[in-house]
């Protein structure tokens, strides 16, 4: 298939230093919000989830395995999120739980994860490192997530993806 004239998406790369800074911004915002559990959305939500569980001094931790993309390429096609399993969820019953992912757009993954926590008897407070405003489809980010530390209009590439700037 030949090349098209479609403009390449805006790609925002994040460094480890920026991730540490964004996580600190979330920590500062969550101070005093009585979080007693943390749940991370696998895979990429686990990185900020682990960092925040340490920063907030919260040891009750769960992993929610929810998949949407089928590849790691920039602008990879997405399907409806699918629950694939969880780990440590039962320990969060009755707790106010910080549910965290790396990025949110339409919010479908976060919706599924939030429902899973509620079904497990937890009270979720949602947070992401980054909101992709290009995927909000006109919705206010507040309707999708409680806290976020950065906003971009385009694709985000995180340092744990191991992609160099020249990688496709």
């Amino acid at each position: 298939m030949g090349k098209t004239d479609t403009p390449s998406p805006t790609v925002h790369r994040f460094s480890w230093e920026e991730i540490a800074g964004l996580t600190r911004l979330l920590r500062d915002r969550l101070a005093g919000s009585r979080i007693t559990g943390v749940a991370g959305v696998a895979r990429s939500g686990l990185v900020p989830a682990v960092m925040l569980s340490h920063m907030l001094g919260v040891r009750s931790f769960a992993v929610l395995d929810i998949a949407r993309t089928h590849s790691d390429a920039v602008e990879a096609e997405k399907s409806r999120p699918i629950r694939r399993g969880s780990l440590g969820l039962e320990a969060l019953r009755g707790r106010r739980v910080l549910l965290i992912d790396d990025i949110v757009g339409q919010g479908l993954t976060l919706d599924v994860a939030r429902r899973e926590l509620i079904e497990a008897g937890a009270e979720p407070v949602t947070a992401v490192l980054v909101v992709n405003s290009a995927n909000l489809a006109g919705r206010d980010a507040r309707a999708i997530v409680d806290h976020w530390a950065c906003e971009v209009h385009g694709w985000a590439v995180f340092p744990w993806e191991g992609k160099e700037p020249d990688d496709a």
Partner: peptide
Amino acid sequence: TAKLFRVEQPIDPDLGVTRFLSTWRRRTGA
């Protein structure tokens, strides 16, 4: 089109923003 970092906690315009930006720059170099 920026990577817009969002600070929601109350911040003092009397040197508070300066301290925040200086600390960030010292920690990250950015």
